[in-house]
Design a protein around this nucleic acid. Structure first.
Length: 577
DNA sequence: TCAGTTCGCGCG
DNA sequence: AAAGCGCGCGAACTGA
């Protein structure tokens, strides 16, 4: 394969017009590391027609930025493997990427269950779709110094192969009717790349104060626990004395043994099991200890080290198709599981002069459910703006809507969410107790179940149909495909298209948001049915109404018979205040 | 000693 | 008849 190494602007200029006219460009970069703020962009490879340019960005310098931005924002389809990575590096160096994009990694994930390969790195995709081989990660090691012939040649091949990969994958996407979902995914790559690049602001001094506070709470709880578990002994180390307790409360094994001494024989120590014995003071204290321990180890301690020294912000990474259902996952840190308590969320506040605009969908999964099953009563309820949880309460309790109490509505909420995914009576009872502090007997749960499906006949018949046919394939409303093993149960078949369609809707919103957001307004977090923006404090009203409108329109594209509602609020922090 | 697995739990 | 789904992360545990 032929390639040209470009080390100066003069050498680049002859190719500029040809690149602007190209209809498809394979794009790859080589960098000195993984962090766009701390590592350097070394090579930019552009493959088009029968040519590959390998641009030595160290040699050419930033004079080339405006030319590359023009090319990469033009009408050509840009083909990347994991576009997010390259887009962030190009952006950090002042090179813009916009417009039509094809991401081979994401295409690979979409095609995974349609005769694709589980290995969606470049090597795996090339082997599977082209039956060829490309360099493994080890070969593209150090790009900071002098480049070898082999490094340049592998770099060129990585870009060149994208063009042929795309052709094969487009064919496969069409064959399996996955073009729409691919378009949806490609469209929101920019939103995610920009969100990761921008990060989210965490007030570290508030965070540290909260850490101290929770540590104090934990030692108070421990003081109360010592009478039951034994006081710690002070051991003299070489330089300091170390407190050492007889029992490790984090060891489930030891906790089970401990509880045995107090007459409790438990097979595990989960919250669910323990909460049946709240009358024992030790159990109550144990659960309180767990709560603080979880807060400290999972959230408070870990996060400080993850603040980017350059931006001073957190830069969580998102797995665009992180979950089987099509939902995104998040890590480093996982911003999607920060506790809802105000004292945690309020640490995520907008910087000075800026505000957060927080919007979430109202009961999106239930609305999706109504659309997918075509349930008349549910659709009617949403159309007339009824409170679906109240309606459900009145239907399963057989009383008038006005007589439904707050706690009854709370139980109905558990019924609504639980039964959709095939929960049995026992599961429903436990779920209602745990998630909604709602007490129901097993008989009540069974009765609710019966009446629920009598009331929502569309949901009942949809589930009956799935149960009977046990389909080995299902799709979301955007066409995302799920393949089920013969032996996989009902709940996955009930859940995947519902959760997946909700994910489609959110991604549709993200995709159309990118182009509409003004210059200094950023997406800073996405949590399944929620989008958080950061903007100038003077622009909050426009931003809030834009966000709400985009989210609702994204929903309406797929839910033709059910209204979609998003609620936006303006706040200083993620606690909403 | 260390990679891989399991448990428990935070979120939607 | 009975059945929640989807994640990531930290600590403990397991096995070679």
């Amino acid at each position: 394969m032929d390639y040209k190494v470009i080390t100066s602007m003069e050498a680049f200029k002859p190719y500029y017009d040809k690149l602007n006219k190209a209809s498809v460009i394979g794009v790859d970069t080589e960098t000195t590391g993984l962090n766009p703020y701390m590592s350097k962009l070394r090579l930019i490879q552009l493959a088009y027609d029968d040519e590959v340019l390998v641009i030595d960005y160290f040699g050419v310098g930033s004079d080339i930025n405006s030319y590359l931005s023009k090319i990469l924002s033009g009408q050509a389809v840009k083909v990347f493997q994991n576009a997010k990575f390259d887009i962030k590096f190009l952006k950090a160096n002042g090179i813009q990427v916009k417009g039509r994009l094809f991401d081979t990694m994401i295409a690979g994930q979409i095609l995974r269950s349609s005769g694709g390969t589980p290995r969606v790195n470049l090597e795996g995709l090339v082997r599977h779709y082209l039956e060829e081989f490309v360099s493994k990660e080890e070969q593209k090691s150090d790009f900071s110094g002098c480049l070898t012939e082999s490094q340049l040649s592998y770099a060129a091949k990585d870009a060149e192969v994208l063009l042929r990969l795309r052709e094969k994958m487009v064919h496969e996407l069409k064959r399996h009717k996955l073009v729409e979902v691919a378009r949806l995914e490609f469209q929101c790559v920019y939103a995610i790349a920009h969100m990761e690049y921008r990060g989210i602001h965490l007030d570290i001094s508030m965070w540290n104060k909260l850490t101290k506070k929770v540590e104090e709470e934990q030692s108070e709880i421990l003081e109360k626990l010592y009478p039951y578990i034994g006081y710690p002994t002070v051991q003299l180390g070489f330089f300091e004395s170390v407190e050492k307790s007889e029992i490790n409360l984090n060891s489930n094994k030891q906790v089970i043994d401990l509880l045995k001494k107090y007459g409790l024989e438990l097979e595990n120590t989960s919250k669910h099991t323990l909460s049946r014995h709240l009358d024992h003071p030790i159990v109550k204290l144990l659960l309180m200890y767990r709560h603080t321990s979880k807060a400290l180890t999972s959230f408070l301690y870990g996060i400080n080290g993850q603040i980017n020294p350059v931006t001073g912000r957190l830069h969580p990474h998102y797995g665009q198709i992180g979950a089987y259902s099509g939902r995104m996952s998040c890590g480093g840190p996982n911003i999607q599981q920060i506790p809802r308590e105000d004292r945690f969320r309020s640490c995520f506040h907008a910087p000075k002069g800026r505000k957060l605009v927080i919007a979430d969908y109202s009961q999106i999964e239930l609305r999706v459910m109504a659309q997918i099953t075509g349930d008349k009563r549910m659709i009617e309820a949403y159309r007339s703006g009824e409170d679906l949880h109240r309606l459900t309460a009145s239907l399963v309790l057989e009383k008038s809507i006005d007589d439904v109490t707050k706690t009854e509505r709370q139980s109905a909420k558990a019924v609504n969410f639980g039964l959709i995914f095939g929960m049995g009576a026992a599961g429903l009872k436990a779920y209602a107790a745990e998630s909604y502090q709602s007490d129901m007997t097993i008989e009540e749960a069974e009765l609710f179940r019966k009446r629920y499906f009598r009331a929502y006949k569309g949901v009942a018949s949809w589930q009956r149909k799935i149960k009977k046919s046990l389909p080995d394939e299902e799709r979301t409303l955007a066409g995302r495909k799920f393949v089920f093993r013969k032996d996989s149960g009902l709940s996955g078949r009930y859940n995947a298209p519902v959760q997946g369609t909700a994910a489609d809707i959110l991604k549709n919103a993200l995709g159309s948001l990118v182009a509409k957001l003004p210059e200094d307004t950023y997406i800073v977090a996405v949590v399944h049915d929620e989008i958080v923006l950061e903007c100038d404090e003077k622009k909050t009203l426009e931003t809030a109404s834009l966000l709400r409108r985009v989210m609702e329109e994204a929903g309406e594209r797929y839910l033709k018979d059910v209204p979609v509602l998003a609620e936006a609020s303006i706040a200083d922090s993620w606690a909403g205040k």
